[in-house]
Amino acid sequence: MNHHQQKIYIVSDSIGETADRMVHAALTQFNLAQVDTVKFSHINTVDKLRRIMETAATTTSVVAYTFALEEMNQEIKALAQASGIKTVDLLHPLVETISETFGAAPKNEPGMMRKLDEEYFRRIEAVEFAVKYDDAQDPSGLKKADLVLVGVSRTSKTPLSMYLAHKQLKVANVPLVPEVPIPEELYQIRRDRCIGLIISPEKLNDIRRVRLKSMGLNEKAEYASMQRILEEMEYAEKIMKRIGCPVIDVSNKAVEETASYILDVLKVERSAVK
């Protein structure tokens, strides 16, 4: 054995990111400049594992591993015992404790942490998308969006965009205001990628008055007047008909309820397109 070579072998039947982070977190507690780490991903056969363990036996080493596959867990224990290599199971003790405590069987599927990481980053990307393309700030986003919401002011376009972003949908929204030209891109997207939001005039009147009051403005301003609201809604209806998109009434609906309904409508619309 070469005692001048000091290594930690990180071995996993998946990417090995969890094990890698744990090992490097532990190493921050030491001043071990001469210790190298070597990561081996997707080690899912006994032959691959044996070759790694043979290499590890030639150095002063520790083998840290995360195996979801029980066969690999048993094999590395046998190899470690036969060779005298120090090993650390970073995953199985915790999985076993959870299983025994809560009476639940583990999935024993490699890569579950990677799937969680991918879902997390997709959500972050969708949230950033919703912020960037809120209120048609950049019309180029309409063609990139999984979904575009259109409606007059205060129909929950932004809250819905953010909520659906956490469902990993990239959502853009466009306010329908008579005095503001509609982005041409809105007419170029498929109808199954757009949802129109409508609301009762009375409900919208209440919401806008509260909004003005919270901003310290006169709640009787034109923005909250019934005449203005009816004009905007008539204009919005024409735009939605031109687009040909499904329309959802958000009156007296919570954001979660509307979002669930939107997802159901999209399933129906997209299955029809197919």
Score class of each variant (00 low, 15 high):
Arg209Lys: 05
Ala64Ile: 10
Ala26Glu: 07
Asp13Ser: 04
Pro106Ala: 12
Leu90Asp: 08
Glu256Ile: 11
Asn31Arg: 13
Glu96His: 07
Tyr163Asp: 05
Lys48Val: 13
Arg154Met: 05
Tyr163Thr: 00
Gln34Trp: 11
Glu231Trp: 15
Phe40Gly: 10
Pro93Arg: 11
Arg228Ile: 12
Lys157Met: 04
Ser41Ile: 07
Leu212Phe: 03
Asp206Ile: 01
Tyr65Ala: 10
Ala26Asn: 08
Lys115Val: 15
Thr37Pro: 04
Ala64Cys: 01
Ile248Asp: 00
Asp47Asn: 10
Ala26Ser: 04
Gln34Ala: 10
Val250Lys: 03
Asp117His: 13
Ala26Ile: 07
Met53Thr: 15
Ile198Gln: 01
Leu266Pro: 07
Ala26Tyr: 08
His3Leu: 11
Cys194Gly: 03
Leu204Val: 01
Lys77Ala: 12
Ala26Met: 09
Ile98Val: 07
Ile239Gly: 00
Gly196Ser: 02
Lys7Ile: 03
His3Gln: 14
Asn252Val: 07
Ala25Glu: 12
Ser99His: 12
Gly111Val: 10
Ala126His: 15
Asp89Cys: 04
Val174Phe: 00
Ala68Met: 12
Glu71Leu: 13
Ile15Glu: 08
Thr37Ile: 08
Pro178Gly: 08
Gly16Thr: 08
Lys238Met: 08
Arg242Met: 10
Asp89His: 02
Asp192Leu: 01
Arg154Cys: 06
Arg122Ile: 10
Leu164Trp: 05
Ser200Lys: 00
Pro178Cys: 08
Arg270Pro: 00
Leu230Ala: 05
Gly84Val: 09
Lys241Gly: 02
Glu70Asp: 15
His24Cys: 14
Ile43Tyr: 09
Asp138Pro: 12
Thr58Val: 09
Arg123Val: 11
Thr158Lys: 07
Asn173Ile: 06
Arg208His: 11
Tyr187Leu: 02
Val38Asp: 10
His166Leu: 09
Arg193Asp: 11
Ile189Arg: 01
Glu269His: 05
Phe129Lys: 03
Thr59Cys: 12
Tyr223Met: 07
Glu185Phe: 00
Gly16Gln: 08
Cys245Tyr: 02
Pro159Val: 07
Lys143Phe: 08
Leu263Gln: 12
Met240Val: 08
Glu219Leu: 00
Arg154Pro: 01
Lys203Val: 02
Asn31Trp: 13
Gln6Val: 03
Arg209His: 06
Ala254Pro: 02
Leu169Glu: 11
Asp89Ser: 14
Val23Pro: 06
Ser200Ile: 04
Ser153Cys: 02
Ile182Gln: 00
Leu263Met: 15
Met113Thr: 15
Tyr65Gln: 09
Val95Asp: 01
Lys267Asp: 09
Glu179Ile: 03
Val273Gln: 07
Lys170Ile: 06
Lys143Glu: 09
Lys167Thr: 05
Ala78Ile: 14
Thr60Ile: 15
Leu160Gly: 02
Pro201Ala: 02
Pro201Arg: 01
Pro175Asn: 01
Lys144Tyr: 06
Asp206Phe: 06
Arg208Leu: 10
Arg242Ala: 13
Arg211Cys: 03
Val95Trp: 03
Phe67Thr: 08
Val11Asn: 05
Leu90Lys: 06
Glu237Phe: 09
Leu212Arg: 06
Arg122Leu: 14
Tyr65Ile: 06
Asn108Arg: 15
Thr60Val: 13
Met53Gly: 12
Lys203Phe: 06
Met72Lys: 12
Arg190Phe: 11
Asn73Met: 15
Leu69Phe: 13
